[in-house]
Nucleic acid binder design. Structure first.
Lengths: 349, 349
DNA sequence: CTTATCCGGTGAAAGCTTTCAAATTGGCAA
DNA sequence: TTGCCAATTTGAAAGCTTTCACCGGATAAG
């Protein structure tokens, strides 16, 4: 591989001049500049990112730490980040944590030795990111938190407007006439799960629709959790006419549980998801869902990161992206009768 | 950040000794070794991967180049590779090509300057990888091709047994009594699409079931393509009783097209996919599919890569992983009547 | 005409590790 | 005690780039 020294010799200039031409770090007169560029061209020279990073104390790599690439929501986020990073000359180092904060810590610890320009993180459960990020920041690396925030997070973040998304969705269901609401939340130590629950509750309080705590179930963000919790909810009396799921995987589990219980969605019970994954379109019935912009979450985070790398030292930014309600076939107005508690019993003669 | 010099001073040994302790590159007597390790511990020292890579002419990064992370088949492959890489101290640099060979070339070109230990590549359409890989190999970096191979590829590869998978699936359908087969292949310049078609044809030839060329449609590996081609196939007379889709996304499009045409799957027509994505389980009817081990594809590639990095210089390896047929509700025996060509017409009185 | 500035350009140091030749140590045989 | 070999340990070079102090020459000011 050619190096700067060879370029310098061919172009008959000094090493420093080559560097200045390549980085625009000082004015270089036209003829010299041309000679350098020609030499670069002729040898197909590319600067060593390693040497450059070593010298500058910073590479153009970005660490991207996510829970699990095979969870269908995350690839879009990663893709958004990669696109922006790549088109600005940065590369993404991908790390999965499996929501294990020890594994996250290991990644955080080891990534440092690559001197990344920054980190884009979707924190794991019980993440220790807040403490770690401090040391990155000291080393001049930006850290952007995406989708959900660890405890006491004060730094930059890009999230979806979970609260408003949930709120709008529940409002819609209220207008349809529903009064028996249940929700299956994700793990409530995660901020996104909390916010979705908060939106759910605000909409109902505002309409003075009470919700018994039994109708709020917490589980993991997956199909199994949704399935099991739905079975619990379906046994409650009165039976809820709506299940608002913390994400689409939970909603998917809910649909299966409803079907397996011999009930019909949406006739007997409406189901609403969150995320609007591709799968929402192909379930039966197709799943209504609060759509959040996964790709934009990633691309926005990457842009914010680049701003920081380029010197923006303003106060922490908290970017919140809007959501939209995607209405499909899994929701319908409630049936007239079973809304009243007293009526539920006759079903078991 | 602490460096080796500081460790050396604290441990009261030379720089070289620290390096030898850390790398086991030479025998170091116990007391010195202990002093070094203690110093490392006390300062939380971690060697700079950049300096190490610069000196060794090779980093412990692995470039992973794939068409598109948001295509649901690829995340599992990436995840498999990342797991193995990480647990061996390697990091993955992720690059999407969007099947654009120019973008692939750009990645290939630029990744070189990071001196990766190797590359794991799912080649793009019309990939130029074969030429590029040569220069990587010269630089001591291994290149492993996964899932499908570019033209004239002679190097290491890890693929699924597409031919056998397709063959077994078609055999199964033959046993069910089907005689009118159609297939919607992926782009036939891709080896995996070719192989699946080959398996399809071998099974039918063996049973002396002829297939008119019209019944073989080629398209892109996505839902839209599957939808459009299915509409074409459904207009043929006699109407096929089976559509073997080149992958699950195509199959999904086929299911939608069948439904939109007022037909029933599997009663009127059976549909078979390939990949066995998560979505196969939740379509209606659930999709039968040839299951290929995405995660293993990635993890096997990573293991092979590590073998190469560690000095295995044997001849090129072509690892082929087995597939299994996952039977769900989208296939059924053909209805008695419409199997014969002549009978198709009465349907349009 | 001299002096202060400025522009372009240069060479060397620094950043951190690995590796190799050379120096040193320790042990053992003579 | 001396000599010698093998085992350890050391110091410096190399790998490639960025950056900074500094220099020659030219221009502007006095």
């Amino acid at each position: 591989m050619p190096n700067m020294k060879q370029i310098a010799k061919i172009a008959n200039v000094s090493l420093g001049t080559v560097s200045h031409v390549l980085n625009g770090s000082a004015r270089v007169r036209e003829p010299l500049k041309r000679r350098v560029l020609e030499a670069v061209e002729s040898l197909g020279y590319q600067p060593s990112q390693l040497a450059r990073g070593l010298r500058r104390d910073k590479t153009n790599m970005v660490g991207m730490i996510i829970p699990d690439l095979t969870n269908p929501f995350f690839p879009a986020v990663v893709r958004g980040a990669e696109d922006i990073a790549f088109s600005n000359g940065y590369r993404l180092i991908l790390c999965n944590t499996d929501n294990d904060h020890a594994k996250e810590l290991a990644h955080l610890d080891q990534l440092r030795t690559y001197l990344p320009a920054g980190l884009i993180v979707i924190p794991s459960h019980f993440s220790d990111l807040t403490a770690q990020a401090e040391s990155y920041r000291k080393a001049g690396a930006a850290v952007i938190c995406v989708d959900r925030l660890p405890k006491h997070w004060k730094g930059d973040s890009v999230t979806a407007d979970n609260e408003a998304g949930a709120y709008a969705a529940i409002r819609h269901l209220l207008k349809l006439g529903h009064r028996q609401f249940a929700t299956i939340t994700g793990p409530l130590h995660l901020t996104n799960a909390q916010e979705r629950l908060a939106g759910f509750q605000r909409a109902l309080q505002q309409s003075r629709v009470p919700v018994n705590p039994e109708y709020i179930q917490e589980t993991t963000f997956d199909k199994q959790g949704g399935y099991a919790r739905t079975l619990v909810l379906l046994r409650l009396i009165p039976r809820p006419t709506v299940i608002f799921a913390g994400n689409d995987l939970i909603a998917l589990g809910a649909l299966l549980a409803i079907r397996d219980s011999g009930l019909l969605c949406p006739k007997d019970i409406s189901v609403l998801g969150f995320d609007d994954l591709d799968l929402a379109d192909i379930t039966n019935p197709s799943l209504s869902s609060v759509s959040q912009p996964g790709y934009q979450l990633g691309s926005t985070a990457a842009r914010l990161l680049l701003d920081r790398v380029r010197g923006d030292t303003g106060p922490a930014k908290h970017i919140v992206l809007g959501t939209t309600l995607k209405i499909r076939h899994s929701i319908a107005p409630p049936e007239r009768r079973p809304a009243r508690p007293a009526r539920a019993k006759p079903r078991m003669p």
